[in-house]
């Protein structure tokens, strides 16, 4: 679309969908904003007076807020690190010619098709359960004390579960990127005297940088709003040690029936998500223009 004419025609053509999407976003967003300034509790019907920033003050000064904030960041960061490092290694492995490649690839992708609630329950009951779980069996077999993962390392356990779910996604994207690596380039590097490690760091990693960026951006969007895994395993506890922002908003608005407070939390979450997004784009967005 290079000429003036084709550009304005293009704008006209896409305007219906842009307007629809805008309405789709703006209406819930403005309602949330509106509720966040009201005293609006479902247990106290009647007038919903305008209270200014009171809901925000409550939400931000709640001691749970700060721990939810750090939990969210630790969760996102931990899962990103595990999935990207693990994804690169798995992709390297799957890129090798081997017997039964097709089946192995499908097996690797499989966890992605399991619903979050289901996989979290499977992990909780079949692996991490301190009495019947597989890990407890293994610990007992080795003569160790079984470890109650969800009680003593709730956030780490949730990071593990979520990483398990997202690893296939990262692996898949990184594998396709890896397959587009020109083999002559690798051979040239080999002739230039680069050993396996040097080839990995000087050729493969730079080649993957764009794919890694895509994985980080997409996963961050989803990881900021992890919810089901927390709900079915720890319920945010013990205390608030595995509560993230999404879960805090849920606890505020639904467990306390406080629509106003929940909305304020939602708005805060949106602002924080945008801060994270700006940070990410500043840091790694340049990898996307080529």
């Amino acid at each position: 679309m290079s000429t003036q004419h084709s550009r304005s025609a293009a704008r006209l053509m896409i305007s219906p969908s842009v307007i629809l999407l805008l309405a789709w976003m703006i209406i819930p967003l403005s309602l949330t904003l509106y509720f966040s300034f009201l005293r609006y509790n479902l247990l106290m019907p009647g007038a919903n007076p305008f209270v200014g920033f009171e809901n925000y003050t409550y939400f931000l000064t709640d001691p749970a807020f700060f721990s939810a904030l750090t939990n969210t960041l630790v969760l996102v960061g931990g899962v990103l690190i595990i999935t990207i490092v693990g994804g690169v290694l798995l992709a390297l492995l799957l890129d090798q010619p081997m017997w039964g490649q097709g089946i192995v690839r499908i097996l690797v992708i499989a966890p992605f098709f399991v619903m979050p609630t289901v996989s979290a329950l499977v992990w909780k009951n079949m692996f991490m359960n301190p009495v019947n779980g597989l890990f407890a069996y293994m610990a007992k077999f080795l003569g160790l004390q079984p470890f109650d993962f969800l009680a003593h390392a709730p956030l780490a356990s949730i990071i593990l579960i979520v990483s398990w779910q997202w690893l296939p996604f990262a692996t898949l994207i990184l594998l396709t990127a890896m397959q587009s690596l020109d083999s002559e380039r690798m051979e040239a590097a080999e002739m230039d005297g680069a050993g396996p490690l040097a080839r990995f760091f000087y050729m493969v990693v730079p080649h993957l940088s764009r794919a890694i960026t895509v994985v980080i951006l997409i996963q961050t969007i989803f990881l900021l709003s992890v919810f089901a895994e927390i709900l079915v395993t720890t319920n945010g506890g013990p205390g608030t040690s595995s509560t993230n922002l999404t879960y805090l908003v849920y606890a505020q608005s639904l467990l306390n029936f406080d629509v106003g407070g929940g909305s304020a939390g939602g708005v805060v979450a949106i602002i924080l998500a945008n801060i994270v997004a700006i940070f990410l784009m500043r840091m790694i967005g340049k990898n996307l223009d080529a």
Partner: peptide
């Protein structure tokens, strides 16, 4: 030995 490839095989980054 040094090799020059048909596709040049330069390092694009």
């Amino acid at each position: 030995l040094a090799m020059v490839f048909q596709s040049y095989a330069l390092y694009p980054h």
